[in-house]
Design a protein around this nucleic acid. Structure first.
Lengths: 121, 121
DNA sequence: TGTAAATTACGCACTATTTTGTAACCAGGA
DNA sequence: TCCTGGTTACAAAATAGTGCGTAATTTACA
């Protein structure tokens, strides 16, 4: 992650979408506006720190929009931008691809050491 | 990464595609068969060990195929499976999406601390 | 009436966990 | 012995979790 200038758009999208949370958040948000605390409740295994970090990242990437209201008890809304909405079907397509290619597969993605198959030349 | 059974296909694809290397390797391989050493040469910033690990992961995910030949200076070929090939355009779509949404943007993805905007309720 | 407590969305410092890099080693064949 | 592809052990680095602090206003309660 030393490269400041990355030439490839794919590398850049992946930098934003990599990890467990970005796509998950995308999914919680695609149905409408949510508050920080909603997202926390929706996913208890995501720490508030991570949530804040991921939300910022997605915001900078122009995928979500953050709206803060002055007043107490404090309130901040998050929702998808237009860009964010166009992203959803692309991610869906990946999910569909996975399911198709997973037909009949039982192997998990766990990395176990395995003996390589040897084919003759 | 405690979840052994992940319900969501999107979560699973992202587990495979997350990080710098998977999509990159996909790109090096989409033009045809490559050997381990080719891939090493193509991307010098990717360590020997990482290359081996990523290749295994992609293989288990059914994206690439590994073919080992018994014979002299040892030789192993990698190429995309049929599934792998159908994945390429989906990743391309993400790249295109990024470029479109990036129009006119100068902001990098660097995470700087920034004061939140306050809107009135 | 005064004051303490609760509320919400984080920031910060510190720790734990995971991922990645380094380097050394291994196996099989000419 | 050298070569290729790969593994293992250990170190370094990146990433994620924990828990406290805070702001400004309302509510709780003696």
């Amino acid at each position: 992650m030393k490269d400041v200038v990355s030439k490839c758009p794919i590398e850049e999208v992946m930098r934003v979408l990599s990890g467990r949370w970005p796509t998950l958040l995308l999914y919680y948000l695609k149905d409408g506006t949510k508050r920080f605390s909603d997202l926390q409740r929706d996913n208890p295994t995501l720490s508030h720190r991570m949530l804040a970090l991921e939300l910022r990242k997605l915001e900078k990437a122009g995928i979500i929009r953050r709206t803060a209201y002055s007043g107490y008890p404090l309130r901040v809304d998050y929702d998808l931008t237009a860009s964010g909405h166009t992203l959803v079907p692309l991610i869906d397509a990946l999910g569909d691809w996975w399911e198709e290619r997973a037909e009949g597969r039982v192997e998990s993605i766990e990395t176990k050491t395995q003996k390589p198959l040897i084919k003759a030349a």
